[in-house]
Amino acid sequence: MKINYITTSTFGLEAVVKREVERLGGENINVSDGRIDFSGGIEMIPRFNMWLRSGDRLLINFAEFYAYTFDELFEKTKALPWEDWITIDGKFTVTGKSIKSQLFSVSDCQSIVKKAIVERLKPKYNVEWFEETGPEYKVQVGLLKDKVTLTIDTTGPGLHKRGYRLDAVVAPLKETIAAALIDLSYWKKDRILFDPMCGSGTIAIEAAMIARNIAPGLTRDFASKYWPQIDEKIWKDEKSKAYAEINVDVRPEIYASDMDPKAIETAKHNSRLAGVDDSIFFDTRKFDSQTPAPGDYGVMISNPPYGERIGTLEEMKEIHKNLGLFLKRNPSWSLYVITSNEEFEKQLGKKADKKRKLFNGNVKTDYYQYFGPRPPKNDTI
C-alpha cells in the first residue's frame, strides 16, 4: 500500500530535508515552501520518525481538495475513509491554519472537520459516542488559497525532541536545525569540529550522533507507535536495523566550549544522555581573540548570541570581530555561523563565500559560510 506523506521543514532547509527523504527511500518527491511531499509504504512511518534529522515531523497526507464554503468542507471531509486510520477508541484532535482562503476562521474549520469525521465514523462503528481513550490521531486542516490539505500526524511531539536535551540554557538551538547546519557544512566525521559558544551542546552532540550514525529518534516515542495499522514487528525491525547501524568504533574529534560553567555542565549531561560523551571535548572558556584552534583544517560551526536572543550589541560585535581574527590566524579552517545580525560580515571583516536565509524559531536569520581549503589527501584529518 502506497501512502502519501509530508515531511515538514523549517523555511530555508527544504533542500536538506529533501536529501534525507531521498536517502530514506521516499518516492515521487516534490518540494515546496516548508514541506516535502513523497510517497512510500507503511514502513516509512517508523523509519522516517526514527531517522529524520532535519525534518520537523512526518504527516500522512490524507486528502487534498478545494473548498469555498463550510458545507463543502464538511461534505468532502465526511466522504473520506477516516475509519482506515482512526480506531473506535481513537483520541483525535483537530488543529488548523488558513492562509489567503475564503474560509478564514480557523476555529470554525477545525470544528467542522471534527464534526465531519465523527459523522463519518458513527455508522462505520455503529456508535453515537466516542470514548477517545485509545491511540492518538492528530488531524490538521490546512487551507492555502482555498485548497484544503487534511493530514494525520504520525510523530507526536516534534522531531527536534530527541530525548537527550532534558536540560537547556537560554535560547537553545533546535536539534533539527543544528543537524541541518552540519549537513550544509563541509564537515565530515574525520575532520575536527569546534563550537566555541556551545550553550547546551546541541551542535556538538548532533555532529557526534551523525559521526556514529545514531538514529536521532532511536530512544524516543511516537504517536503512531500505538496505531494498530502498523504491525509491531515493523517497529521492532526498524529499531533493530538502527541499532545495528551504529558505528561504536568511530571517535570523532569534536570540541565544544562556553564561558558559562553551568552551560558546560548541561552540555556534558546532555551528551551522556545521547551516548556520545566520549566523543566531545568540553571546556569552560570565553571565546576571544586568543582562542586557539584545536588542530588544522577544522570546521567551526556556531550559533553565537544575537539580538533577539541574548547579549548586547557591543558583545555581539566583539564576538564577530574575534571570529574574523580566528579565521585570519587559522587559514586552513572553515567557519559557519547562524545569526540575525545583518552587520555580521562587516563586523567579522570578510564577506561570506555563501549565505542562506532560514528561520530559527520565528527569528529570521542568515547562515554565513566561509569555506577553507580542503585537507591534503594524505592527511588523516
Rank of each mutant, 00 (worst) to 15 (best):
T219M: 13
T219G: 09
T219K: 13
R220T: 06
R220D: 10
R220S: 11
R220M: 03
D221Q: 11
D221T: 12
D221C: 08
D221S: 15
D221W: 09
D221E: 15
D221L: 06
F222D: 06
F222A: 00
A223F: 14
A223R: 01
A223V: 00
S224R: 10
S224F: 04
S224D: 02
K225N: 13
K225V: 01
Y226W: 15
Y226G: 01
Y226M: 02
Y226T: 00
W227S: 00
W227F: 03
W227Q: 02
W227N: 05
W227P: 02
W227T: 02
W227D: 01
P228T: 04
Q229K: 12
Q229N: 13
Q229W: 03
I230W: 04
I230N: 07
I230S: 06
D231A: 06
D231N: 14
D231Y: 06
D231V: 02
D231T: 03
D231G: 00
E232K: 12
E232Y: 00
K233Y: 07
K233A: 12
K233E: 13
I234F: 07
I234S: 03
W235K: 01
W235E: 04
W235G: 04
W235D: 01
K236Q: 11
K236C: 00
K236F: 00
D237M: 10
D237C: 01
D237K: 10
E238R: 08
E238G: 09
E238C: 09
K239S: 15
S240D: 13
S240M: 05
S240T: 15
K241L: 10
K241M: 10
K241A: 11
K241H: 12
A242G: 08
A242N: 08
Y243E: 11
Y243M: 08
Y243T: 04
A244C: 07
A244M: 11
A244K: 14
A244W: 12
A244F: 07
E245D: 12
E245M: 09
E245A: 13
E245C: 02
E245F: 10
E245P: 04
E245N: 14
I246C: 07
I246R: 15
I246A: 06
I246T: 03
N247R: 14
N247T: 02
N247Y: 13
V248D: 14
V248G: 00
D249H: 12
D249E: 09
D249C: 01
D249P: 10
D249G: 08
D249L: 12
D249W: 04
V250T: 13
V250I: 15
V250P: 06
V250W: 06
V250Q: 09
V250G: 12
R251H: 15
R251M: 11
R251A: 00
P252H: 14
P252E: 12
P252I: 06
E253R: 14
I254A: 10
I254F: 11
I254C: 09
I254R: 11
I254H: 10
Y255T: 07
A256I: 05
A256G: 14
S257F: 00
S257N: 07
S257K: 03
D258L: 06
D258A: 03
D258R: 09
M259C: 11
M259R: 13
M259H: 05
D260K: 06
D260W: 10
P261S: 13
P261Y: 12
P261F: 05
K262H: 11
K262C: 03
K262L: 08
K262M: 06
K262E: 09
